[in-house]
Write a protein that binds this DNA or RNA. Sequence first.
RNA 1: UCCCCAGUAGCUCAGUCGGUAGAGCAGAUGGCUGUUAACCAUCGGGUCCGUGGUUCGAGUCCGCGCUGGGGAGCCA
Length: 460
Amino acid sequence: MKRSKISVLLKSKPSAETVLIKGWVRTRRDSKGFSFIEINDGSCRENMQVIAGQELENYADILRLSTGSAAAVTGRLVASQGQGQAWEVQATGVEIISIAPDAYPLQKKRHSDEFLRGIAHLRPRTNKYGAAFRIRSELSYAIHRFFKERGFTYIHTPIITASDCEGAGEMFRVTTLNPDNIPKAGRSVDYSLDFFGRQANLTVSGQLEAELFALALGDVYTFGPTFRAENSNTRRHAAEFWMVEPEMAFCDLAGDMALGEEMVKYLVAYVMDECCSDLDLFARFVDKNLMATLENIASSDFVRLPYREAVDILSSATEKFDYEVGFGKDLQSEHEHYLTERHFKKPVIVYDYPATIKPFYMRVNSDGETVAAMDVLVPSIGEIIGGSQREERIDVLEARMDEAGLLRENYWWYLDSRRFGSVPHSGFGLGFERLIMLITGISNIRDVIPFPRTPGSIEF
RNA sequence: UCCCCAGUAGCUCAGUCGGUAGAGCAGAUGGCUGUUAACCAUCGGGUCCGUGGUUCGAGUCCGCGCUGGGGAGCCA
């Protein structure tokens, strides 16, 4: 018989038909003459309650099924006589696939996130992490669907790159040179002997490559891993994370902001519609205000706030800040929190930042001192999207590169895109893990990545 | 990288003024019951993170280190 997923069985109609389920024992409760076994197969948060009677020939063995053990159960799917679940399986056969010894670290009680991080190979077997990673999967699908519905083309930009993308952060080196015997050309490393014949790194952004494809295919996006070797030790940073980067030809900053807002709302609404059961777990046990927060995001208009006005608001706030506010200074975490959580109480898009604090590729505004940049700030998480209209005028772009100390010859291909058929275009980067944090209420990025990489931590 | 906090049973934690180790859950055994974080009883269970020091005596106080967490910076 073909095995049925519990998620499918729970949605089916009563038929008393014989089914086969396979999964892991979450808990077992014995009664006189029979035993209740809760089986979870990972297809959904809910367990299937199995009734195993003493008439089963291996009943003595069934009583040894401990939490974490694996079993295959054949039986009739019937309406449950008890409270708490609609369905149950009256077992006609229980095959014990494997018994988990007492040393199994997961118990049928709440564990701390810190403890579970230490057993990242087992934590997806818990309700909370199973739900988190199912939502992560659903969100990935929703991202592709969002762009598909809008005619975007999915681009795979390179993971290994030679461009040091305007110093978006420290980069991981990619090399096949022997660290114990590095070839030198004079005092510096002779990269001509390295695999690619020059210095290579893991990508910190697919943006520059995505721009080239936007200027060919119109609307494109990337969705893949990104690497930052920054020594960041916070609940919002990881060395390896996933980023979504749409890039649109013939699009200005207003269109960029509109897409960012539309996308965040779409994804929030998607999970609210499609992941009710998993989301409910987070709303009940992780963040009591989660549903109100999500409804607020899905239904309210995001504030559009020029950087200058943000500075004015912060300057006249009665709140005391540790960091000074002023034109030319970047907004600090405390400022973002104030704007989204206390002043506006909803997502805020700050735009038109001073050119001095933004990278070379952002389009210089007519005032000459600001650039067409925008950050989408959300309560609790802070910056979830950073984007801009790109500088399409080659003379301005080259001047900005010179100011930033970047060598034009290293970006000849990027500059070519402005030389041949350049058009206004815009894009942004959305931190995928931060989005999951926003939607689930999970407060640490290490808990929304299956096997997180952070400074000093790469066990799994 | 900086600042702060924590580390005690398999897990979550308590441990008073410095006086020699506790609870709940988990486990084992028995009982009861269409149960549902099942329940009741009994039992077993400790390198108090490591190291050095103060003291008659350190889980407790002090130094150093390790690990984890929170905040900041950087950013998504």
